[in-house]
């Protein structure tokens, strides 16, 4: 199986590798994994609480090229999006952009799960610090 040029590009030059301060109330952390292939992916977003816009996104993935490319691409897309827009990102968008073959679709699913997990973590933090939101959540 050959990787597409875009996958190779993200694999060789991954964007936004790193981590954000997990304890920052504006940072949401998503950690997901796929036991079948042994991948583990951490994706973090830093949200501007005033505007709801994602100002920064970082990832660190241990796994195959497609998993790394999927999460790298995801962080690129996340920057500048609102939290709601971010939740609208579908794994199929990643599949199309990277031309992932069918056997690697689960890597894009992992990236989508990581986005959702990070945003849910951020929202849970907000709910905890905002009593009103906590009641309605």
């Amino acid at each position: 199986m050959a990787y597409s040029d875009k996958v190779i590009d993200h694999y060789d030059h991954p964007r936004n590798v790193g981590s954000l301060d997990k304890s920052d109330p504006n940072v949401g952390t998503g950690m997901v994994g796929a036991p079948e292939c042994g991948d583990v992916m951490k994706l973090q977003v830093k949200v501007n609480p005033e505007t709801g816009v994602i100002e920064d996104a970082k990832f660190k993935t241990f796994g195959c090229g497609s998993a790394i490319a999927s999460s790298s691409l995801a962080t690129e897309w996340l920057r500048g999006k609102t939290v709601d827009e971010a939740l609208a990102i579908k794994n199929t968008d990643i599949v199309n952009e990277l031309s992932l073959p069918p056997v690697k679709i689960h890597c894009s699913v992992l990236a989508e799960d990581a986005i959702k997990a990070a945003i849910n973590d951020y929202r849970a933090k907000v709910a905890k610090t905002t009593p009103v939101a906590a009641v309605t959540a």
Partner: peptide, 22 residues
């Protein structure tokens, strides 16, 4: 089947082990 969502503590452990190895 294998868990779709492995427990967080397992992921944390695997992540840390990978970081150390890297």
């Amino acid at each position: 089947h294998p868990a779709k969502t492995p427990p967080p503590e397992l992921l944390e452990e695997v992540f840390e082990l990978n970081m150390a190895l890297e």
